[in-house]
């Protein structure tokens, strides 16, 4: 038996909207630790890892570890029927082939339940090793989204370079070249407006902008995005989910063969 109740139901909606463009079908894993997911995009270039810790739920019951295969666009269709202020409960029986989503309005005067068929998904679980990153950039998530969107009108790839100068985003296209440099800026009124750059070693990596733009669909989850870079490692683009966990996107770089 699985029963998860989240008063701030809009979080589920935001999580789904953040990952559904990248991944079609995924196994949601439920254990005493929390509700999690790991999935790759269809071309196996990017990976998404979600964790919603059990402590973040108002009610969390998971009698035994359970993995539920779901189609994310079907799930998103059902979650679209939930109001932004609704309380969302996810229920499933052990060994069952359906999952139930229950939406309660804050005043309890409207209660809906949606039953969705589960699917069997043969997905590969990858071990993500702990790594020391050469550079970690924290910046406003809206600023990062703006940069990715702007650069993708000019080129297909972005070179992200971190040096003493700051973090530089470069693209090239048929019409020309674009460079955007963000310098460390901690003297702002609000911490969520700061750009903070930790650099152990200079780093420069090339990525497909198409994926970066897809990651920025998770922007409503957090005011801040953390970009961790190491030469010859996938970049990690992380959106923290307040008091609950995170959505992390890993993207393999473009490399010289």
């Amino acid at each position: 038996m699985l029963e998860l109740r989240l008063v701030q139901g809009s979080l589920f909606k935001k999580v789904l909207d953040g990952i559904k463009d990248l991944v079609n079908d995924a196994n949601f894993d439920c254990s005493s630790t929390g509700f999690s997911l790991q999935a790759m995009d269809s071309s196996h270039v990017a990976l998404v890892a979600l964790l919603l810790r059990s402590e973040g739920f108002e009610h969390y019951r998971c009698d035994r570890n359970i993995s539920m295969g779901m189609n994310l666009s079907n799930m998103a269709k059902m979650f679209k029927c939930a109001g932004n202020d609704d309380i969302i409960t996810i229920k499933a029986d052990d060994g069952g082939d359906t999952v139930t989503f229950m939406f309660e309005s804050p005043t309890q005067d409207k209660i809906s339940d949606f039953e969705m068929k589960l699917m069997s998904i043969d997905s590969e679980h990858l071990g993500i090793p702990e790594a020391e990153y050469h550079a970690i950039v924290k910046m406003p998530s809206s600023e990062f989204a703006r940069i990715c969107r702007d650069l993708s009108t000019i080129g297909d790839t972005v070179v992200i370079s971190v040096s003493k100068e700051g973090v530089k985003f470069t693209t090239k296209g048929d019409i020309g070249i674009a460079n955007i440099v963000c310098r460390q800026n901690t003297s702002v009124d609000k911490p969520e407006e700061a750009t903070v750059i930790e650099m152990n070693e200079p780093v420069s990596l090339t990525f497909a902008l198409r994926y970066m733009n897809s990651f920025t669909k998770a922007t409503p989850l957090s005011n801040i995005v953390t970009i961790s870079l190491s030469n010859e490692l996938p970049v990690v683009v992380e959106y923290k989910i307040a008091e609950m966990g995170y959505v992390r996107f890993y993207l393999a770089p473009k490399i010289e063969e």
Binding site: L47, G127, L233, Y250, A252, K254, I255, E256, E257
Partner: peptide, 14 residues
């Protein structure tokens, strides 16, 4: 010219 690496190059099946 650069080619797109895949995730499996870095992360192994667990």
């Amino acid at each position: 010219l650069k080619s797109q690496a895949r995730i499996a190059r870095y992360f192994r099946s667990s």
